[in-house]
Design a protein around this nucleic acid. Structure first.
Length: 451
RNA sequence: GUGGGCGUAGUUCAGUGGUAGAACGCCUGACUGUGGCUCAGGAGGUCGCGGGUUCGAUACCCGUCGCCCACCCCA
């Protein structure tokens, strides 16, 4: 609140990014983009706003409620109806793009997209109403090579950012369905049953039983399902055993066995990739978005309740636009989640802090402003990042300002320097000062700031 | 959406039914060509907002808004 009575906070769930925030974001986005391109993904951007019908019905009931809707404008505003909406994720717009531009796209279209999305969610730690997703998706193939490339790519991103300890939980929608069907859970209760089972490690077997009772789910199913979900945390080595137990349980269920087969294939193919050692088959992983049809995956780290990212296969989403199914699989890294964890763990390179500036040129006196600007120009020609102190304040004040800004060098041209054709350069980090010939000043700074 | 906690200086926080304090930061000076250290001064707050109780509220009560935590959901 200010003297005007107007709140100066950004709208709920939205944030301002100050220079250091932007530098951190750009650092992470840079790593992500570099790795994605290394995997052959090409850039795509889509509008912030979509026609509302494009989004409705793609995310499930919960998702529909969280879409930011835009009222009709002008004389139609009073009708209270919405015809546009802010994009909710990057996957549905991609599906629309693929359907729209199909003829221009390669048979196997691989794109990355790093843009903000909006959700009318309640903000929390690592959760905002405007946030960036960093997506990769591969269109046009049902091969598990696609899943493995995607998992490998996001794993490589996390490694390059310095993460060692992440776990990628892996499951398959078809397998979940098979398990619930075999256990005798009626189809309309599948969602509720999964939510209850997912809480197993928090509320225990008795808690799950209570949830089942409250949601009128076949109680006998619990005894059948619990052994499959009890896997225990962190045991990536047990993937084979978990899959065998699941396969035995679902027996002759055809699509379920296909899912087991594709999970086995993914584990095998991922062996020599950066994803190796991070994959954990987890039958309790469900994921809320309704468009997934096959593999589903989610990245977790111990110190964040939510996930760093998630994805999966969605073989009929494009068909909802095109009228003909096109297979697709993708993954979304959550930039804000990554930034939250990296910030708390101190994982950013040190040179991201401080001013984005190598040298501050001081103003000796009111008559020397043109000289300061000239010197700054020479430094800039040499590729240095230069700030000119804008006022003829006392030199101590200018030094103090530079120090507070964490600028490494200050350049001073006083009467003595002017007479001698030199510049005094003070390294504020060490406190040492050198007076060098003006022609050599830029190079001197360049050497000492590593540019 | 449900439950709980918190809103006091630029920031982090003390505090009391009688209209407020610290630390850090900021400004000035000691320092007439030099930041960080030290010292001396100084500026800055309608105690989130609205109502109620009271002689009197920043404090107690109600409402509201905002922030935080848990649940739910997710990136």
């Amino acid at each position: 609140m200010t003297a005007t009575g107007l709140s100066t906070q950004p709208a709920r769930g939205m944030r301002d990014f100050l220079p250091e925030d932007v530098r951190r974001r750009e650092y992470v986005v840079g790593v992500i983009r570099r790795v994605y391109e290394r995997y052959g993904f090409e850039p795509l951007e889509t509008p912030a706003v979509e026609n509302i019908e494009t989004l409705l019905g793609k995310y499930g009931e919960e998702g529909n409620k969280l879409i930011f809707k835009i009222l009709k404008r002008g004389e139609h505003e009073a009708s209270g109806t919405a015809d546009l909406a802010l994009r909710y994720d990057l996957t549905v717009p991609l599906a629309r793009v693929v359907a729209e531009h199909q003829a221009k796209l390669p048979k196997f279209f691989k794109r990355y997209q790093i843009q903000p999305v909006w959700r009318a969610d309640r903000p929390a730690r690592g959760r905002f109403r405007e946030f960036y997703q960093c997506d990769i998706d591969a269109i046009g193939s049902t091969s598990t090579v696609v899943e493995v490339e995607v998992l490998s790519g996001v794993s490589e991103v996390l490694h390059e950012l310095g993460f060692q300890d992440f776990v990628i939980r892996l499951n398959d929608r078809r397998l979940l369905t098979a398990m619930l069907e075999v256990a005798g859970v009626e189809a309309p209760r599948h969602g509720d049953a999964l939510i209850a089972l997912d809480k197993l490690d928090k509320i225990g077997a008795d808690g799950v039983a209570a949830e089942f009772a409250a949601r009128q789910i076949e109680p006998a199913a619990i005894g059948k399902l619990l052994p499959l979900f009890g896997g225990g945390a962190g045991a990536t080595g047990a993937n084979g055993a978990i899959l065998r137990a699941l396969a035995t349980f679902i027996g002759a269920h055809e699509t379920g066995q296909a899912a087991v087969g594709s999970l086995e294939s993914m584990l095998a193919l991922a062996g020599p990739t950066p994803a190796s050692g991070h994959l954990r088959i987890d039958p309790s992983l469900a994921r809320g978005l309704s468009y997934y049809t096959g593999a589903i995956m989610e990245i977790q780290v111990a110190d964040l309740a939510g996930s760093l990212g998630g994805g999966g296969r969605y073989d009929n989403l494009i068909g909802m636009f095109l009228g003909r199914d096109v297979p697709a699989c993708g993954f979304s890294l959550g930039l804000e989640r990554i930034l939250v964890v990296m910030g708390e763990r101190g994982m950013f390179p040190a040179d991201l802090a401080g001013a984005g500036c190598d040298v501050l040129v001081t103003i000796w006196n009111a008559g020397a402003m043109d000289d300061a600007l000239g010197l700054a120009g020479e430094f800039r020609q040499a590729g240095l990042r230069v700030e000119v102190y804008p006022e003829a304040d006392k030199i101590g004040k200018q030094l103090k300002y530079a120090s507070g800004r964490q600028v490494p060098f200050v350049a001073v041209v006083g009467d003595d320097e002017r007479a001698g054709g030199t510049v005094s350069l003070k390294d504020l980090r060490s406190g040492t000062q050198h007076t060098v010939r003006r022609a050599e000043a830029a190079a001197f700074i360049g050497v000492h700031v590593n540019r």
